[in-house]
Computed example of a mutant assay.
Amino acid sequence: MLARMTVLAREVDGGSAQDAFLADAQRYRKELLAHCYRMTGSLHDAEDLVQETYLRAWKSYNTFQGKSSVRTWLYRIATNTCLTALDSRQRRPLPTGLGAPSSDPVDDIVARDEVPWLEPLPDDSTDPSNIVGSRESVRLAFVAALQHLSPRQRAVLVLREVLQWKAAEVADAIGSSTAAVNSLLQRARAQLDAVGPSEDDALRPPESQEAQDLLARYIAAFESYNIDQLVELFTADAVWEMPPFDGWYQGPENIVLLSKTHCPADGPGDMRFVPTTANGQPAAALYMLNKATGVHEPFQMHVLAVGEDGITHVVAFHMTTFEKFGLPDTFPGRVAT
């Protein structure tokens, strides 16, 4: 799309102004992707909305008066592009956000494919050195909490508290008044206090020794099919959920029993993991053995929250491809036949 936009720009006026704009605007692609992800909870939707943002910016480039920076202008366009899209889309929850109590690990598990579930975000889609791509603002618990807000509440909270915009700037961006923005922010904060993450401040970054050690032990327990070892890794009130299945499970014993009851693996070697990061958290890509082909294929992306006393939360997203995470579609070293 960007190549087509560049060609069109050259046809219009020799391309000098638009080419310079496009070259400058590309610096903000990753942070705009993180912004649209926060708003929608979907990597795929965010990618489409960033493309739409650049297309809208190119079409309206001649109206850009330079009263704000290109970056601020792009964020205004991206925010309104997201708000328009969210008018016709459902919120993206995790199973814990559906309002049901924790599930019995030996009961049948039920897939709800009709639910537009929250999706994980590969870390290479953000820039942790930049405040708008900071780990805290894309952690799963925070993005899941945002889904409880109305689209306009989300926009105001993200612009004010993640991007640190002034209330008047936000009001101008979304076509509202400063008083309305302040009211939206107050309601958004109250809603987040009710449903928001309590774990974020205590989470260990993925590169920390504690997180690395726990991730290695977590992977080893699954790969060796020594599931009972997982009890030692989870905190007493740890939570496990695995969209598109709508149940969620609390406590190490329940998590272990769930794995023993419903995991399709039969023994050591059936599961292979590749450590990675997602949403600013340690993660592991699970390849499950396809017994018909003898090849380990993409199965789940486990995103871990590691606190002071162990693993506090795991979201095991069902995945059919790991392309967005830069990982192959068969376990490294294996070739599908």
Score class of each variant (00 low, 15 high):
3 A>E: 12
325 F>I: 11
101 P>D: 06
106 V>C: 08
203 L>K: 00
103 S>F: 08
31 E>L: 15
174 I>A: 05
168 A>C: 07
96 T>E: 01
216 A>P: 00
213 D>N: 14
150 S>Y: 11
209 Q>I: 14
230 L>T: 04
225 Y>E: 00
88 S>V: 06
150 S>C: 10
251 G>F: 09
84 T>N: 14
147 Q>N: 11
237 D>S: 10
12 V>D: 02
76 R>Q: 03
66 G>C: 09
196 G>P: 11
45 D>I: 12
107 D>E: 13
216 A>Y: 01
115 V>G: 00
248 W>H: 09
251 G>S: 09
328 P>C: 04
148 H>I: 10
282 P>A: 10
12 V>I: 15
194 A>V: 07
99 G>W: 08
268 P>N: 01
63 T>N: 04
281 Q>G: 11
47 E>T: 13
242 M>R: 05
263 C>Y: 09
323 E>Y: 11
254 N>V: 09
100 A>D: 12
61 Y>Q: 06
176 S>H: 06
182 N>F: 05
290 N>H: 11
320 T>L: 09
311 I>Y: 02
302 H>N: 14
279 N>G: 04
47 E>R: 15
59 K>P: 04
58 W>N: 05
138 V>S: 03
199 E>H: 12
104 D>K: 13
12 V>N: 00
273 F>D: 01
292 A>P: 13
275 P>W: 03
80 N>C: 12
58 W>Y: 13
196 G>N: 03
81 T>Y: 06
76 R>W: 02
323 E>R: 15
314 V>H: 00
118 L>D: 02
142 F>D: 00
291 K>G: 01
86 L>R: 13
165 W>K: 05
255 I>G: 02
328 P>A: 14
304 L>K: 05
140 L>G: 04
297 E>M: 14
163 L>E: 09
17 A>D: 03
66 G>E: 00
135 R>D: 06
157 L>P: 05
288 M>H: 04
315 V>Q: 01
276 T>N: 05
123 D>G: 14
20 A>L: 12
194 A>L: 11
107 D>S: 13
285 A>H: 06
134 S>V: 06
3 A>N: 07
294 G>N: 13
106 V>L: 15
131 I>A: 12
184 L>W: 09
309 D>R: 13
235 T>E: 13
137 S>K: 10
152 R>M: 12
102 S>G: 07
59 K>F: 09
219 I>P: 01
2 L>D: 07
37 Y>D: 00
9 A>W: 06
63 T>R: 15
283 A>K: 06
208 S>L: 15
77 I>P: 04
40 T>W: 10
92 R>P: 15
123 D>M: 12
122 P>N: 07
138 V>W: 03
288 M>V: 08
181 V>L: 10
50 V>K: 02
108 D>K: 13
319 M>D: 02
188 A>H: 03
123 D>A: 11
261 T>K: 07
4 R>F: 12
309 D>C: 07
19 D>K: 15
323 E>W: 10
149 L>E: 02
32 L>T: 05
109 I>M: 14
211 A>T: 07
309 D>S: 14
295 V>W: 03
313 H>C: 06
14 G>S: 02
203 L>V: 03
